[in-house]
């Protein structure tokens, strides 16, 4: 294949793949009347922010705060739990270690659909349906296997000699850990934290099962906005809502993209 042909094909494909994302942004800036026209508007000339102001309603704010609470809780809890487990697996040899690693790997493969019936029944029994605590518990368990796996790789990469050298120089074990190992681990913690954030922020399946229609995380809110009644759907509004939901994700995603690719290939499944 000649270089010119390849490049032309590459440009066409690039345009094809970006088009839906472009269309979301484009429509979000159109006045409602202009989106209902037999000929589409391809560039939002004469557009404005009115669609955004229409979707910034109290129900959006409620969903935003709900999603933020769940996401923050999941990120913090998952990072602490996973970090402790990664230390154990990477720095200690103990009976049951292999079994634990194997369990983590198998658990990663379990699809949400295979357990949500009994998770629903369980949370119902505990009175935790439709609650931040209930949803967060399921999310923490869903992201833990991958975060443990990822952090284990990072801890493995930091030679224990470094810590021991610091201890010989007079550090206690704790201070050696916090002065030497912890700073080296920071990139791993950031990457795992972003992963947990993305999962909790985007998750739809379990949220549909666990939350009722009046308490919606952002993905549920967005679906409600688009589905409410097909004829009168305010498409610029829906697209503005999608931009608001997608923006933090796209920013964080770009930050850790490289690590996510290699991480996924070497052992992550939840996507």
């Amino acid at each position: 294949m000649s270089k010119r042909l390849a490049n032309t094909l590459g440009i066409i494909l690039a345009l094809l793949w970006i088009f839906p994302v472009y269309w979301m942004v484009n429509t979000a800036f159109l006045p409602a009347s202009q989106s209902r026209s037999t000929t589409p508007t391809f560039v939002p000339f004469g557009g404005d922010f009115s669609a955004f102001s229409r979707v910034l309603t109290p129900s959006f704010m409620n969903s935003l705060f709900l999603s933020l609470r769940v996401t923050l809780l999941v990120v913090v809890v998952a990072l602490i739990f996973a970090f402790l487990a990664a230390l154990a697996v990477s720095r200690f040899r103990f009976a049951g270690r292999k079994g634990f690693i194997l369990t983590i790997l198998i658990v990663q493969m379990i699809p949400a659909e295979a357990l949500f019936i009994s998770q629903y029944k369980m949370l119902q029994g505990w009175g935790l349906l439709n609650s931040v605590a209930g949803l967060s518990l399921l999310y923490v368990a869903a992201v833990l296997p991958f975060t443990v796996w990822m952090l284990r790789g990072f801890v493995d990469g930091i030679p224990a000699d470094l810590e021991q050298a610091a201890m010989i120089d007079g550090c206690s074990r704790t201070s050696a850990f916090f002065r030497i190992t912890f700073p080296l681990l920071a990139p791993g913690l950031v990457a795992s934290g972003v992963y947990a954030f993305l999962q909790a922020w985007n998750e739809f399946t379990l949220a549909t099962v666990i939350m009722n229609p009046s308490t919606k995380t952002l993905p549920l809110w967005l679906r409600g906005l688009a589905i409410q009644s097909n004829q009168a759907t305010d498409w610029p509004g829906v697209m503005a809502g999608s931009v608001l939901v997608a923006l933090p994700v796209i920013i964080f995603f770009m930050l850790v993209q490289g690590r996510m690719t290699s991480g996924l290939v070497s052992g992550a499944v939840k996507g």
Binding site: W17, V21, W201, N202, L222, M239, S242, V245, V249
Partner: peptide, 15 residues
């Protein structure tokens, strides 16, 4: 491709 990959699934569905 990266933008398409980064899109949250529900945002992609609405689009």
């Amino acid at each position: 491709l990266l933008f398409a990959w980064a899109m949250p699934v529900i945002a992609a569905m609405t689009v």
